[in-house]
Amino acid sequence: MLYCEQLSFRYQTRQIIQHLTFHVNEGEFVSLIGPSGSGKSTLFYLIGGLYEPEEGTIYLEGERVNGKRGLIGYMPQTSSLFPWRTVEENIRLSQELEGQIDPKQIKQLLERIGLSSYANHFPHQLSGGMQQRVAFARTLASKKKLLCLDEPFGALDALTRSEMQRWLLSILEEEKRTVLFITHSVEEAILLSDRIYVLTPGPMKVKKEFHVPFPREHRWDQRGNKDFLELREEIEAMLLG
């Protein structure tokens, strides 16, 4: 689905990414985990075509997409809703840009994120968690197969955050999508992903790849298990060391 081969990128004189290679299979949920400021967002800008890599190639469904825009669904960390658009109009935006509006799907999405009664509210009238749900629905409304989520729950308080993780798990059970997920929470990564790449900062490289062995449907209840905690400790040790 997505294959990044030997990517390098420098911003002015600072080498941000060096020989980064990783892939995401169709239908998979892959997390990139690394310290803040390690250039994870920059990686998304490369995949999104905002910048061109200095070296290396990005393949999306077998096609070289270096510097090409409009091919992925993208959701930034901070609320990226348009303040002058209502909830419904915000969700519609991604379809407007694709030139195909499907009012039925938008209605379904509103129901699925539990905000049908807020369709005509403006973003500032919603809580942080609700805003991120709308932003996620906007990403889902696009026809893009690969969704790139850049720390979508990073700005939320702990309680809302775990509520949102549970919610995302349930949504993805119904709606099979390929997801590339940036986070710096180890627990969040184990809870949501099939595979995890641990990254090193400055310049960014893959340090290790982990497969998450627990079945998705039971993960929420297995959070406190021995295996779960062991994996968590192992990844944390890797991040620190």
């Binding site: 999104g48 075509g49 409009g70 992925i72 990226s80 002058w84 840009l97």
Partner: peptide
């Protein structure tokens, strides 16, 4: 800038960026 990045990654044209983002935010 976050909204601008979103628009660009979503593949919005210069004109779309202008009337869907820049004009309303300059109002």
């Amino acid at each position: 800038p976050t909204l601008l990045r979103y628009m660009k990654i979503a593949g919005a044209s210069r004109l779309e960026i202008f009337y869907k983002l820049e004009w309303p935010s300059a109002l």
